[in-house]
Design a protein around this nucleic acid. Structure first.
Length: 879
RNA sequence: GCCGAAGUGGUGAAAUGGUAGACACGCCGCACUCAAAAUGCGGUGGGGGCAACCCCAUGUCGGUUCAAGUCCGACCUUCGGUACCA
């Protein structure tokens, strides 16, 4: 008989909702456990099977911890700002708020149908004004703070030391240039069709979908995340995260140590050139200098004779996209572009031109030619390099192409101690040669000595450089948080008063960006509301009544860019601590309680390994510096669930037709089966394919449990009778309690389920296990299959929820066996097995083993050199 | 190229350095049934033997150890990330 999952699940979902079973308590004296899912973007497609994977794992942990007596915070919310809803609005004319609400309702329904024990009273939505009031508040905190490098933390902007001699405008500019939120003209990824700027990491996604993205300098809000580079890197030692994610963050931050070296430039202008190098020990090997084409010094140092070719080269570079630039489409000898996918740094074609000026080598006073080349990026270091072709493959390739001298200054030595004469470029460490100051020193020592020399002679200094760039924080969109800043007519910035927040996103039916400068009604827009103007502003710019206003007799106009989707998700975990607080993002007490040591367990996709997690850590640290949060890191333990593939082993996609819809699975097998199956598929972190056969097996397992406990809809009294073999029951029960508890702690949920299967198989054989064991097993099952376990619990006579019962504990003394199967090995090969009493002495074990016929025979005429006994396990004769 | 993770039956997968393949899917058999489904019970890595048993087997090749899927070295493959970052 099939078990009536549909009735059971509906019944208990209604019950939980009615009783508000899973609301976190406001008792701050209990030990807390905060287990969080990465909240979803509520897309129109609804939940896919990947969502419930992580959500089930956290739900199991949440229910387990509650039963262990923890006050558990397990909330859910919606990351609901974002481009898809806005694009849908542009196509259909339906306001994003309406689409978003509809999608959220659908997501909520789906999540509830899976029986997750969220505290729905704490549900949040990033698009609610009550929520984004505090997103804006945090933005103002960033705007009104600066990073003080002396105390190494953010401080209120009022504490910034401002030079006395600055007048009003200069003073404002000085302050503005120190704020953690600032405006800069940045070359950005501009997509005309979308009418917006994209983050670097978003470019590929949209290019892949057929959109054109170009580089364009535009006025943008930036957040000074680079000020936190060092702490974002160093504090990774405090978190319990997957190794791969730690590495990704480290690489993204990209710390490297080296030196800043100053080269004088040999022109009539008194200018000098600063370069960053990680190899100061190769300073004597410098044979040319390279500036990024955009480097501001180029204008000053280029003599009239070279102006034309420099201008031409700069123009060519500006037209190249980043991708083209990285792939080296041009070659001085006229070779064409390399096909994508065959890029090799060594062979990457190098282009560039001489600027006609020379630098002076700070140690040898030699004249060194200066080039501009697009392989040097303005955005990293100083935008200029000292080129050492003998020991850098890029400089080597450039020198070869341009016929520049190559001067080896590092020698590598083989095991014999003689020079290996390794081919150039020689990247690896070695010993300095042809370098008077440091000759004979190993690379590491040579670097140190050189830096020391540079500092003493004021021609350079030690320097730590990061790859991390500041966070481009503005988007030319409607459906995002308005930036709470206005501008006076003479260009001063005026921040919204905190008391006046939220700055509400105005109603608008006109969502067409004012910036789309491409053709109207492009391939992607079926419904164009008006012809764009091409200014690159957000749709908010059209709402002149909202943009222009007066305050204290001053005419002001609002910022029309909105915040990126990352904004709302960078602090939502804090809001869950106190989601209805109107005065503060969360009360001091609730923050200190729920966020003590951060979120205890955070589960979500590895695709957020860098950006979301880095941005959230950054905001958290700013709030920490300003005294608003008590922990230095937001997420203590992090786990990524693996991707669930389609049945054919490839990624689920509509086009492949291999998408599994959770609603269908729940309808066919029920939520408990769905939950259990997703956990049984394999290790949580691992990528794994869906199998419609295997889910049948899980369904059978639950049906088997149902039949074990129920007989014609009534409790199976035979099961609850006193067992014939009480010892066997206690043993398997205690084993199961131990294994399931340990496995939940380590998130090995697949093996926890295996153990429960073993228990059920055993119980079928035993027929009766007694009421106590029957109850305890259902409790173990509860985090995994909450509906069925509630149903059984009620049938066992309880009127309170099993979720509120106390997690069973095991008695280690009942796990001790009296006998074990002894393994007898000769030279590590198994020759016999025998059942023996636990606790047998090593000597008795050996004597016993020697008497076994096959062993006796095998040991005849052999010298026993050694006998190894592993207590209560095995013996090994070495002959 | 660089960084990271992983390679175990027909399949998903288990294994504190100590009996490789738990648990499940699939398959085979038995019981129930007129029959089937469902259910219950049993078998199932490969090769050999009537049998007790024996040999082989955790990507490849070496090493450490009484003992290696597990530790070390080199290599191969797959997946994820990243890529002119000086």
């Amino acid at each position: 008989m099939a078990y009536p999952f549909a009735d059971i699940e509906k019944k208990w979902q209604d019950e939980w909702e009615k009783r508000q079973t899973f609301n976190a308590e406001n008792d701050f004296t209990k030990p807390k456990y905060y287990v969080l899912d990465m909240f979803p973007y509520p897309s129109g497609a609804g939940l896919h099977v990947g969502h419930p994977e992580g959500y089930t794992a956290t739900d199991i942990v949440a229910r387990y911890k509650r039963m262990q007596g923890y006050n558990v915070l397990h909330p859910m919310g919606w990351d609901a700002f974002g481009l898809p809803a806005e694009r849908y609005a542009m196509q259909t004319g339906i306001h994003p708020a309406i689409t978003t609400k509809k999608n959220i309702d659908n997501f909520r329904r789906q999540l509830k149908s899976l029986g997750f024990s969220y505290d729905w009273s704490r549900e949040i939505n990033t698009t609610d004004a009550d929520y984004y009031k505090f997103t804006q508040w945090i933005f103002l905190k960033l705007f009104n703070s600066y990073y003080d490098t002396k105390v190494n933390k953010a401080l209120p902007i009022e504490e910034l030391q401002i030079p006395q001699n600055l007048n009003g405008k200069e003073r404002e500019e000085f302050i503005a240039s120190h704020r953690l939120a600032y405006i800069a003209s940045m070359p950005v990824n501009w997509c005309a069709e979308l009418g917006t700027v994209l983050a670097n990491e978003e470019v590929e996604e949209w290019v892949g979908k057929g959109y054109k993205v170009e580089r364009r300098p535009m006025r943008q809000w930036m957040l000074r995340i680079t000020a936190y580079a060092e702490r974002l890197l160093d504090d990774l030692v405090h978190v319990d995260w997957p190794q791969s994610t730690l590495e990704l963050q480290k690489n993204w931050i990209g710390r490297s140590t080296g030196a800043l070296v100053t080269f004088a430039v040999d022109t009539q202008h008194a200018v000098s050139l600063q370069v960053f190098t990680t190899r100061p020990d190769t300073l004597y090997g410098v044979t040319f200098m390279v500036l990024a084409p955009e480097h501001p010094l180029v204008d000053i140092i280029t003599p009239e004779s070279h102006k034309k070719q420099v201008a031409e080269y700069r123009e060519k570079t500006a037209l190249k996209t980043d991708l083209e630039r990285q792939r080296g489409v041009q070659h001085p000898k006229g070779a064409g572009a390399l096909p994508v996918g065959e890029i090799d740094v060594n062979k990457k074609d190098k282009s560039g031109v001489m600027v006609g000026a020379y630098a002076i080598h700070p140690l040898t006073n030699e004249k060194i030619p200066i080039y501009i080349a697009d392989y040097v990026l303005m955005g990293y270091g100083t935008g200029a390099i000292m080129a050492v072709p003998a020991h850098d493959e890029r400089d080597f390739a450039f020198a070869e192409a341009f016929g520049i001298e190559i001067k080896p200054v590092v020698e590598t030595h083989g095991s014999t101690g003689s020079p290996t004469g390794a081919p150039l470029p020689r990247i690896e460490d070695g010993v300095a040669v042809n370098s008077p100051i440091i000759d004979g020193l190993k690379t590491q020592d040579a670097k140190a000595k050189m830096i020391e020399y540079l500092e003493k002679n004021k021609i350079g200094e030690r320097r730590v450089q990061y790859k991390l760039r500041d966070w481009l924080f503005s988007r030319q969109r409607y459906w995002g948080e308005p930036v709470p800043i206005s501008f006076t007519e003479d260009g001063f910035m005026v921040a919204e008063e905190e008391a006046d927040l939220p700055l509400v996103l105005p109603e608008s039916q006109n969502l067409q960006p004012s910036g789309g400068h491409g053709t109207s009604g492009s391939a992607h827009d079926t419904k164009t509301l008006f012809v764009p103007t091409g200014t690159g502003e957000s749709p908010l710019a059209h709402l002149t009544n909202w943009v222009n206003f007066s305050k204290d007799g001053k005419k002001l106009s609002r910022e029309t860019n909105t915040m990126p989707q990352w904004a709302g998700s960078s602090w939502y975990y804090l809001r869950f601590a106190d989601p209805h607080n109107k005065e503060r993002f969360a009360s001091k007490e609730s923050e200190a309680y729920w966020l003590k040591d951060g979120v205890d367990l955070y589960v979500g996709g590895a695709e957020h390994a860098v950006l979301h997690l880095l941005y959230a850590r950054f905001w958290h640290k700013v709030l920490y510096d300003l005294g608003y949060v008590t922990s230095i890191e937001p997420f203590k333990k992090l786990v990524h669930q693996g991707i669930i593939l389609g049945e054919d082993g490839s990624k689920m996609s509509k086009s492949r037709g291999n998408v599994i819809n959770p609603d269908m699975v729940v309808a066919e097998y029920g939520a408990d089966t769905f939950r259990l199956y997703e956990m049984f598929m394999g290790p949580l972190e691992q990528m794994k394919p869906w199998s419609s056969k295997s889910i049948e097996g899980i369904y059978r397992f639950l049906a088997r449990i149902y039949r074990l406990y129920f007989n014609d809809g009534k409790i199976n009294s035979k099961l609850l009778e006193k067992p014939k073999n009480e010892k066997a029951v206690l043993k398997i029960l205690n084993q199961t309690i131990k294994k399931v508890s340990q496995d939940i702690e380590s998130l090995s949920l697949n093996t926890a389920i295996s153990q429960m299967m073993i228990f059920v198989n055993e119980t079928y054989k035993l027929e009766s296990i007694g009421k106590d064991a029957a109850e305890k097993f259902v409790q173990l099952l509860h985090p995994f299959a909450p509906h069925l376990s509630e149903e059984i619990w009620q049938a066992l006579g309880y009127s309170t929820s099993i979720a509120k019962s106390a997690w069973p504990t095991f008695d280690p003394s009942l796990l001790v066996e009296d006998e074990f199967e002894a393994v007898i090995q000769i030279n590590g090969k198994i020759r016999a097995r025998q059942s023996l009493k636990v606790g047998i002495s090593d000597a008795d074990f050996e004597n016993f083993a020697r008497k076994i016929d096959s062993i006796q025979v095998a040991l005849e005429r052999k010298t026993i050199r050694k006998v190894i006994v592993v207590k209560n396990k095995m013996i090994n004769f070495v002959v």
